[in-house]
Design a protein around this nucleic acid. Sequence first.
DNA 1: GCACTCTTTCAGCAGACTTTCAGCTGCCCT
DNA 2: AGGGCAGCTGAAAGTCTGCTGAAAGAGTGC
Lengths: 224, 224
Amino acid sequence: MRILVIEDERLLATALKRGLEAEGASVDVALTGTDGLWMAQENPYDAVVADIMLPGVNGFQICRELRTEGNWTPILMLTAKDGELDEAEALDVGADDYLTKPFSYVVLRARLRALMRRGARERPPVLAAGDLTVDPATRRCRRAGNEIELTAREFSVLEYLMRRVGEVVSKREVLDHVWDYDFEGDANIVEVYVRYLRNKVDRPFGRNAIETVRGSGYRLAPGG
Amino acid sequence: MRILVIEDERLLATALKRGLEAEGASVDVALTGTDGLWMAQENPYDAVVADIMLPGVNGFQICRELRTEGNWTPILMLTAKDGELDEAEALDVGADDYLTKPFSYVVLRARLRALMRRGARERPPVLAAGDLTVDPATRRCRRAGNEIELTAREFSVLEYLMRRVGEVVSKREVLDHVWDYDFEGDANIVEVYVRYLRNKVDRPFGRNAIETVRGSGYRLAPGG
DNA sequence: GCACTCTTTCAGCAGACTTTCAGCTGCCCT
DNA sequence: AGGGCAGCTGAAAGTCTGCTGAAAGAGTGC
């Protein structure tokens, strides 16, 4: 479940990211409308949460632009104002739903779920590579019929690798997608998580799904 | 995918180089505007990322100069300032897009991809010469159906030769493109790597893809 | 407040990879 | 034939990367 949050208030953006990720979503954050629009154009998200008031391109423009391009990803609009006008305009330009700040996280999640259910397109429910499967929706991981317990971070790292089976993924990329985009720490953290994952998904099964490509990163073997 | 990064902050330049290379791009770095302009004029890049504030020739000038020469390589401008003025001017002189520092790597990559896609120069994802193929995305190399394991350096050298199949490539050029731009050592290192490559991609197959052109350099035979 | 789990940092280590070097081979010229 | 190069080679030295255990730090639930 990939979600794009376009929101310039970092506190809120981070809160949303954390919250949604805790439920198994893979969340990217854009801090400006310009960035957000580009990211939405570039990646296939399952939903977009966009503030209306944004630096650069505003939420309405993002919405209109995406729709005119034939991009029908569900969009949930946020705004600080609570005028009827905004709401009408939001729906006019093609947003699917509308939420007035301040809102409770629970409400946002509920609406978002509804949106995505409605927009339930052909989306492979589980990621699979050989006998290894990962279900972002239920946040479950199984291998050869055995359920594997993963922590939130572990799951996110594995999910990202699974989304790119076969490709070499650099530690930097993992960092960019799984950690906050402004994570300052050492890329060693990725090595550490790869070790945790290997201990859980590879070692017990005597397999080696996560390959190391020295100097480049890691690659999840297509066959698991 | 060849990308030129013109940026005087070495930290940033290195980060970009690493990141983009990790995704299979072949990245050259210029630390001054003068060098950058020259390199952009000399080599066919798929995209140029240029800082506006540079020692020597600045980003605007590079852009204008290339455009007036009829060079329409996509250019992405970077700047520390976030004035509207800069943005307008960047687009005026012919840049294709504009990014304000600090930016997240994810965003840069997304924009860059979009730019190159817009440039609609469909580039085959894998490089091939006869039965020898190299895939920068997965960092895999195969010959006659056999997977060949290459180290990071070996891969980069081979990739560079493959990008210029049929052409004679001097050791100096290989050094400049594959090693850090400030590599001080002996060009003999290239000979050493050519040997490693021959041992892996030629010898086992009884072929001779990498030809020596005495006095000039090496040439990758178009037929593999 | 305490116990617990999860996340992050850190420094040491082993091994893989890179680079250097000195001698050798073979081509080309006189 | 012999000298001068350019390129080739084997081996050793050097560097760097990724792996690991341990422990500190954050976050959560009781």
